[in-house]
Design a protein around this nucleic acid. Sequence first.
RNA 1: GAGCCCAUAGCUCAGUUGGUUAGAGCGCCAGGUUGUGGCCCUGGAGGCCGUGGGUUCAAAUCCCAUUGGGCUCCCCA
Length: 419
Amino acid sequence: MSKQSYSTHHGMVDLLPGEIEQWQALEAIIRETARRYHFQEIRTPVMEQTELIARGVGQLTDIVSKEMFAFDRGEDRYVLRPEGTAPVARAFVQHHLAQRGGCQRLFYIGPFFRAERPQKGRQRQFHQFGAELIGASGAIADVEIIAFMLAVYRQVGISNITLKLNSVGDPASRNAFRKALHDYFLPLKDDLSEISRKRLDTNPMRILDSKEEEDQPLKAGAPKIIDYLTPESKAHFDAVITLLEKMHIPFERDPFLVRGLDYYTETAFELVSPDLGSQDALGGGGRYDLLIEEVGGQPTPAVGFACGIERLMIACEALGITLADPAGPDLYFVTRGEEAAQWALENMPALRGKGIVCTMDYSGRSLKAQMKDANRQGARFAVIVGEQELADNRFTLRNMAESDEVTVSPDELADRILP
RNA sequence: GAGCCCAUAGCUCAGUUGGUUAGAGCGCCAGGUUGUGGCCCUGGAGGCCGUGGGUUCAAAUCCCAUUGGGCUCCCCA
């Protein structure tokens, strides 16, 4: 009786015709770029075991501690995946992909879920594309991953982007650095922001991430991870830098860049854009040499990235980049009467079989209304099917753009329409 | 979790110091053209003015609450 109205959940949106074309075009670019870089697609379920995400991403991260859509069902604990790397690592281990030999080059496109407060460039269901190069420890792998990521943006036509680069070191580096940070910030504890004070003991590296006003002057004098890298980590970072320069890939060193997920080691990078507003990261990634082991596999080095598709779309819009427009049908059947409509229905499949995109009117409206609809839908041709035409087996084919008409037999239709 | 802003037709928005039947543009439907789109003209449909309460003779307009949305902090894609 009463009309209940429904809408999407907060932070989740519908993609409608007119907008979806841009997404499809972008996905095509991603797939084609992946093909050229020889990354193969992997699709994992949108739900994972909660424990996998908690362990893989890290209990203390914001993602795990407060942003997961999770529920229990009997003995099982489900979570809508908040990111893509831990699930891919899980799949790598579960299916013994290491046994396939060499290193695995995987990419993915899909939805992810975080229960955050939505704002520009941040949705609760959002979409990422990303890639993982698993089983390669050298700096070349890091640079390959970065090159792949940047190639997508180059193909799309987004050029005003900045690659920020840092190293978070290996465990030994991080322990030394963490201790140095703790020693540095401890005497300043009372001057730190509340959030940073909490992190002093749990994860002092995250203080460097802080955008709190009062933390900025304190951050300036803080120790830099670069000075605490072990010789091995330092060598790896230097090698990445050398290779990036060799590849003419511009980047900026950012000593404060600390990625928010626990599994990162060594190289960390982020791609930022001035066109996004407050959430300025298009994507980011880095090396995660400990994750595979953390989720139950053999120690396996790996490096990857993830990029936000919604944010890429925002950048496209800001830059006026249109990747695709809605495509109209090749042929629109304008019909008079039931017999004509059935004739159209019977004749469309053969044309479609030849690759011609056909549609028709289903409402039996006036010829004028049908022509208007054909125009609105962007049809290249309209064919008029009435009693006279059916009797003569000759039909009027109208070129909508040229506004000229020819009379054709049904057999001639396809040749007239195909380019 | 905190702050700021917004809510009138499908969309974008007007709506004077509270004052009759709430408007425009675009879109939609139809007619002008008994079988022809775009341009033009005419007409029509479509609103419990987000919801609930209050003030008032009178509320889209003022007050309170509530819901929804947007942006921002935190953090991330």
